[in-house]
């Protein structure tokens, strides 16, 4: 049973636990009818709750500590994967992981932000907030992919690049900027998938490419709703309003013409059924890589350029 329960998940989880309990007694008692009634009720409740999630509730689901993270997906979807460590300059950043992999017989390089499922792992992973060496490791892996003509898949899940003294000393801005210009011209297909949080430059630093997908319960924005609230409302209390104003859900981003689609999650969210979520992610990766394989380098880079050049809305005074 779930250990970490969000406020709006509670009525569902409670009912599910009750059904589970009754099932274990149903050998001795004739309560099949009662169970059926409850099951119908929980089904209705799920429909009501998950079809009407607010943007802030999506943000909460995206941050659920029991969601699968990059290494969980790798474990579930890769035939093989060898993690490579270090940026060859300073150190290994555990907030970004990556290496050569094989999925459904396709060789590729897989890179992703990595969060921790518990406090200890989160301290190691810096809560998925990379330092410059994380972005430089990612760039090293992308260059490796280009050299061996392997496609790149990146899994995005970060509350942002780390805002710290050492990160600034080592050039956080330069590390992200360098990745952007290199991804713009990388002569191999790149597929980006937001599997959790997609915050700002920290997400974009491994997030440019030829296809961009978001999972159903994820968010993507120039700033986290709390930070937006603190700046524009001058208080941390307006995160719900900020989440609405920022238009940060998978549906919003699709509507804005920034993403190519939404990857469905099992009912209740990816954390309720890791395998089912991983199947969907795997299918999308395989489909996208097969599409992109057909393009020449020139076609690929032309389309990538057009994809970003078209984003923006303006008028004339």
């Amino acid at each position: 049973m779930a250990k970490y329960v969000l406020e709006f998940e509670k009525p569902i989880i409670e009912l599910e636990e009750k059904i589970f309990e009754m099932r274990s007694m149903s050998d001795q008692l004739d309560i099949d009818d009662e169970i059926a009634v409850l099951e119908e009720k929980v089904e209705r409740l799920r429909g009501n709750i998950y079809e009407q999630l607010t943007r802030w509730q999506r943000v909460q689901l995206a941050r659920h500590p029991e969601r699968p993270f990059t290494l969980d997906y790798i474990e579930m979807i890769c035939d093989d994967f060898i993690e490579l460590h270090g940026d060859r300059s300073f150190r290994d950043d555990p907030a970004i992981v990556g290496g050569p992999a094989q999925i459904d017989g396709i060789e590729l390089v897989l890179i992703g932000h990595q969060k921790g499922h518990d406090t200890k792992e989160n301290l190691k992973r810096n809560f998925g907030m990379p330092n410059p060496e994380g972005y430089r490791k990612a760039l090293r892996l992308m260059s490796l992919a280009e050299k061996f003509r392997l496609p790149v898949v990146t899994l995005i899940d970060t509350p942002g690049a780390y805002p710290g003294i050492e990160a600034e000393e080592r050039g956080q801005a330069e590390a992200i900027a360098r990745n952007l210009i290199e991804m713009a011209g990388l002569k191999t297909p790149i597929v980006n998938i937001v599997i959790g949080e997609g915050a700002s430059g920290g997400a974009l630093g491994i997030g440019m490419g030829d296809r961009f997908y978001m999972m159903e319960n994820t968010w993507y924005s120039v700033i986290a709703p709390e930070s937006c609230s603190s700046i524009l409302w001058r208080s941390w209390e307006y995160k719900e309003q900020a989440a609405e104003a920022l238009r940060l859900t998978a549906w919003d981003i699709l509507e804005l013409g920034i993403s190519d689609g939404i990857i469905r999650e099992p009912v209740g969210g990816a954390h309720r059924d890791h395998e089912a979520a991983a199947d969907e992610v795997k299918n999308q990766i395989v489909t996208s890589l097969r599409e992109l394989k057909k393009l020449s380098h020139d076609e690929l880079l032309d389309q990538r350029s057009a994809r970003y050049r078209k984003i923006g809305v303006w008028g004339t005074a």
């Binding site: 713009a184 011209g185 700046i231 920022l246």
Partner: peptide
């Protein structure tokens, strides 16, 4: 920094300008 009031669209301007600079560099 980025203009928050244009949210993800403003974030994408980082990508867009980098594409232009990549081609300028080429």
């Amino acid at each position: 920094g980025a203009r928050m009031m244009e949210s993800a669209i403003s974030l994408m301007q980082m990508a867009k300008t980098s594409v232009a600079l990549s081609q300028l560099a080429d």
